[in-house]
């Protein structure tokens, strides 16, 4: 390829990466800036002095660890439950013809068309009547319900990408349908499962609206809600807020690091299938 084109391509990529990563860089920068320098050196690219005080205070003087644990419980449970249901539903949509299938698919699509704001009040009232307000399970239920349609379509496209011949070959080789699923289809769906897990995990991890509505007790606050406690009536503790933000990134990063091997493969194969 033309060297100028190659250089241009890398420049464009570098430009995009810089643009996308800048807020994260700023987050980290503010987190390590000592309080007294936040405003005096506000626009400098890197502060003249660095400190880990913000991190220490977030960990020792706030309820951050509790928020963090709550978020982890909610996100992991949501990701696990949603992916399990979506995988089963996606498999059924991909492999079986049954009465009502087009209707179910249409209804699932319709659920994706409404802004969530519209249903906050009814959801609140349902959860309240169930006595689940201020519980982590309420969030798990709501997030799971919201994520299942998209996750199902995602999983269906992965299953569609696996030729039906493979299952049939396995069934002729002596497998029951379930054995064929477990021994042949499941290992091939790992990228799809990884992508779905990652997608749902991040969606649940960063969800604020419902967490704000359904949780008011400090004990069950998730991390995005907890982050708001750094905003007091008269001031915002930027340093601590950013430090908490940096730490909140860690599980997402770890999670993606763990599944990225499947993800790269998975997203492309999903993309081709459209």
């Amino acid at each position: 390829m033309n060297p100028a084109l190659t250089t241009g391509k890398y420049l464009a990529i570098a430009g995009y990466v810089g643009f996308a990563m800048f807020p994260l860089f700023w987050l980290l920068k503010i987190a390590v800036t000592p309080d007294k320098l936040v405003f005096t050196e506000g626009t400098a690219l890197w502060p003249s002095a660095m400190t880990l005080d913000n991190f220490r205070r977030v960990l020792t003087q706030t309820d951050f660890l509790s928020y963090f644990t709550n978020s982890l419980i909610v996100s992991l449970s949501t990701a696990a439950v949603t992916t399990m249901i979506a995988a089963a539903a996606g498999y059924a949509f991909s492999r079986f013809h049954f009465r009502g299938k087009p209707v179910i698919i249409a209804v699932m699509l319709v659920t994706q068309m409404f802004p969530l704001l519209m249903i906050i009040a009814p959801i609140y009232s349902i959860i309240a009547k169930l006595g689940l307000l201020n519980s982590l399970s309420s969030l798990i239920i709501v997030y799971t319900a919201f994520n299942i349609p998209f996750a199902t379509f995602l999983m269906q496209s992965f299953f569609d990408g696996i030729p039906g011949d493979l299952e049939e070959a396995a069934m002729i080789d002596g497998c029951s349908r379930f054995q064929a699923l477990r021994k042949v289809i499941f290992p091939l769906t790992l990228p799809g499962l990884g992508a779905t897990l990652g997608f749902v995990f991040t969606a649940a991890w960063s969800e604020l609206l419902f967490a704000l509505m359904l949780i008011s007790s400090n004990d069950t606050m998730t991390f995005p809600v907890g982050l708001l406690t750094f905003v007091s009536k008269f001031s915002v503790d930027w340093g601590q807020m950013m430090a908490a933000g940096v730490m909140a990134l860690v599980p997402s990063c770890l999670f993606f690091l763990f599944i990225q091997r499947y993800l790269v493969q998975g997203l492309t194969s999903g993309a081709v299938k459209g």
Binding site: P163, D165, L166, E168, A169, M171, I172, D173, G174, C175, S176
Partner: peptide, 14 residues
């Protein structure tokens, strides 16, 4: 299929 005791070679090899 698994109890029919047959083997099949597919066009796609599978």
């Amino acid at each position: 299929p698994r109890d029919r005791d047959i083997a099949m070679v597919f066009q796609s090899y599978a």
